[in-house]
Amino acid sequence: MLNNRRKVINKTLNQILFILALMLCWELLARTGWFPPLLFPRLSDVLRTLITDIRSGEIVGRLYFSLYLIAQGLALAVVTAAVAAVLALCSPIVSDWVQAVMAILHPLPGISVLPIIILWLGTGPRSIVAVIWFSSVWPLIANLHTGLRSVPATQIEVGQNLGLKGVRLIGKVLIPSAFPYILTGLRVAWARAWQASVAAEMVFGASGGEGGLGWFIYKKRFFMEIASVFGGMFVIIVVGLIVERLCFEWVEARTVRRWGMTLE
């Protein structure tokens, strides 16, 4: 146990050191003056600009805007997926339909529907929410569908034996039993949504000069403020890591790992 923990710490330390070395290389390489500083700024400049952008509140506002749209898109996707998966559970015909639609639309990258969405919904936040929804809804449905199907029949019968049926049976037995799959679905959906929001905003911000992180990067590039472009990318990486490593790992440790329900 202790030995194991030491291994994990060693591994993390090793990785952090490597990343720090890469960052040092970046700084030194930029300082040689071989490359035009406009295209390849020093890391120290990037970090300094990032701090300025955070202090001025600009990047925080952009981040908030992105997260706000993602929350909307993900919430819609969760509702859609829940309805689809529950209907599929009730009827094998609907299940076939859901699987067919999933097979056709799942491989389609979310961003590729943007042109059509712009025509239908215009270039506003609504379109970005729609792209986020489209990017995240398929992995959610797929995992929820598989999760509900893999609930052991015995557990359902135990619930029925105790008088549970319909919504109570779903809520008290099926959903908790499918939770490992639901968590995986949410993880993938979050990653897709995060990527989709940045990508969609690169094409247009949102109406009235409002936009999220993608729009921030796009605008800074337009004004050739390359240090800020890198700064925006840093924020994207850090937020992604925080949600993945802290939020999801935290939930996982307190649920599926504690219950001995980890998939694999």
């Binding site: 052991p152 015995t154 557990q155 019968e157 034996n161 037995v173 908790p176 039993s177 649920t255």
Partner: peptide, 15 residues
């Protein structure tokens, strides 16, 4: 009034 006990260990709710 009629409670079943199964052979299957999965009958307990792991969560």
């Amino acid at each position: 009034d009629r409670m079943m006990v199964f052979q299957n260990f999965e009958q307990l709710f792991p969560w």
